[in-house]
Design a protein around this nucleic acid. Structure first.
Lengths: 143, 143
DNA sequence: GTGGCTGCAAATCATTTGCATATAC
DNA sequence: GTATATGCAAATGATTTGCAGCCAC
């Protein structure tokens, strides 16, 4: 059940610990781009000894190893995502949902930009999601 | 001297106040993507009565009106920029400088992405800037 | 004249730090 | 056995809130 997370950690020469495995599992099963608090309070139920500090530490370590990525798209708190294939993010300013955007973006690839060596690219889109548009249409009479 | 900032505010039906004018002037004259503290401590010198809260309030109001934009590219603090033409940002992970990237990105235009209505696009690039690369080359023998 | 803006102090929220204990390897 | 990770409590840093007085319009 945890094999793939064990492998992920091993591949990066990181020690296999419960908090790390549980956090990876949580991120793998919840594509909601949770903040630290959401991860912590969910895992805390099954692992009462877990501390917030450990969530912070684990995420930091795994981010440095590019196993997870952190998003700063929304307000002051960091949100986290499994670092799968390159993708960008969309924030709905109405309902706050964060969605993955799986588009390629030629000029935004990992390349040299103006002489600077680019290692990471984060595309943040903000607007109104499909769902919220639907709701608004429903309330209007003139489409 | 302040005419263009007055016009900016008037165009958005915002009241013309000293803090707003000074903040706009500061951003216009400093393309360093400053955080709140930098703006505050710089303006405080000439306007001792200025409060941090007012800097926060003014920036929030002007951001809502799209006169300025806030960046969340670096760590936990917000950084600010005059909201001129569409451009993206590059963060050097060595020296921390934030640079404007003036590239177009076809797929990242303000358009409909997967049915979502896009109003804003922020491209964040991270890596090593030209200057820091130069420094590193100087220290190596096998360039 | 009044609604919105400013500025102070206190509160809150996210994150970091210091350190003693525990655990993976 | 040892370096590293965990977890607690306290500290810090950024931002928000509540509110009284002020000012642009």
């Amino acid at each position: 059940m945890y094999e793939k997370y064990v492998k992920l950690l091993k591949d990066h020469n990181l020690k296999i610990t419960s908090p790390r495995l549980e956090i990876l599992k949580y991120l793998d099963e919840h594509h909601t781009h949770p903040n630290v608090e959401a991860i912590y309070s969910s895992l805390k139920k099954k692992h009462p000894s877990l501390s917030r500090t450990t969530v912070y530490n684990s995420l930091e370590t795994m981010e440095k190893n590019r196993i997870v990525q952190s998003l700063t798209i929304s307000g002051s708190e960091h949100r986290y995502d499994l670092n799968k294939s390159l993708h960008h993010h969309f924030l709905c300013t109405r309902c706050g949902i964060i969605l993955d955007i799986d588009i390629a973006c030629p000029n935004m690839d990992k390349t040299l930009q103006g002489g600077h060596h680019v290692e990471e690219v984060h595309g943040y889109f903000k607007g109104i999601c499909k769902n919220c548009q639907k709701k608004e249409k429903g309330w209007r009479t003139n489409g």
